[in-house]
Amino acid sequence: MEKKKKLHPSVQKFKEFVALNPQIAKEVKSGNATWQDLFEEWYLLGEEDTRWDAYRGERKEQPVVENKKDWMSQVMGAIKNLDPDQVQGQISNLSQAISAVQSVLTQFQGKGSGGAPGQMKNSPQHPFSFRKD
């Protein structure tokens, strides 16, 4: 038997939002927007943004307390669905990127202090360079 994949909580919420606002589905069917674009806007802007007013019928404003609960449930759902290996990989990538930037900055600082670029590559890696007189 195949297991049906469970949808991410944010995708499930978006589907509920579309069900409450069927004009959004008509917009996609007419080719004026894509599901991906609408989902990203919904995810970033939220349900109560004025961007969605064109698709709403008569709807009452939800209480602020309920919106806070929705936000917290979204955050908790996202935390529950985090893959520790994936997070570790992203942290590792970020660390490598920071190291690369530091390396470039070090090279530029070396040029500014009077050293030629060729000297940095050929010189031994010692913290202090002493010359004999």
Rank of each mutant, 00 (worst) to 15 (best):
M1R: 08
M1W: 06
E2S: 15
E2D: 12
K3N: 05
K5T: 06
K5Y: 05
K5R: 14
K6N: 10
K6H: 07
L7V: 03
L7E: 10
H8P: 01
H8Y: 04
P9D: 03
S10V: 06
V11I: 15
K13H: 12
K13W: 07
K15G: 14
K15W: 13
E16F: 06
F17K: 02
V18I: 15
A19T: 10
A19S: 12
L20F: 15
N21R: 11
P22L: 04
I24K: 01
A25F: 04
K26M: 13
E27A: 07
E27G: 01
V28M: 01
K29A: 10
A33K: 09
W35A: 00
Q36V: 07
D37Q: 12
W42R: 00
L44P: 01
L45R: 15
L45W: 05
E47H: 15
E48M: 05
D49L: 02
W52D: 07
A54E: 12
Y55D: 00
Y55L: 02
Y55W: 04
R56V: 02
G57Q: 04
E58M: 06
E58P: 03
R59L: 09
K60A: 15
Q62I: 12
V64R: 11
V65Y: 09
V65T: 07
E66N: 10
N67M: 15
N67L: 14
K68M: 08
M72G: 03
S73F: 06
Q74C: 08
Q74L: 12
Q74V: 03
V75C: 01
A78S: 06
N81M: 06
L82I: 04
L82C: 02
D83T: 01
D83M: 03
P84V: 01
P84E: 00
P84K: 00
D85V: 05
D85H: 00
G89A: 02
Q90L: 03
Q90H: 02
I91R: 00
S92F: 00
N93W: 03
L94R: 08
L94H: 06
L94Q: 13
Q96Y: 11
Q96P: 03
S99K: 15
S99Y: 09
S99P: 00
S99E: 15
Q102E: 14
Q102F: 06
Q102R: 14
V104S: 08
V104Q: 07
L105E: 11
L105G: 02
T106C: 08
T106Y: 10
Q107A: 13
G110Q: 11
G110D: 12
G114H: 03
G115W: 12
G115D: 14
A116N: 14
G118K: 04
Q119A: 13
Q119H: 09
M120S: 11
K121C: 09
K121R: 13
K121G: 05
S123R: 12
S123A: 14
P124W: 02
F128N: 11
S129E: 10
K132I: 13
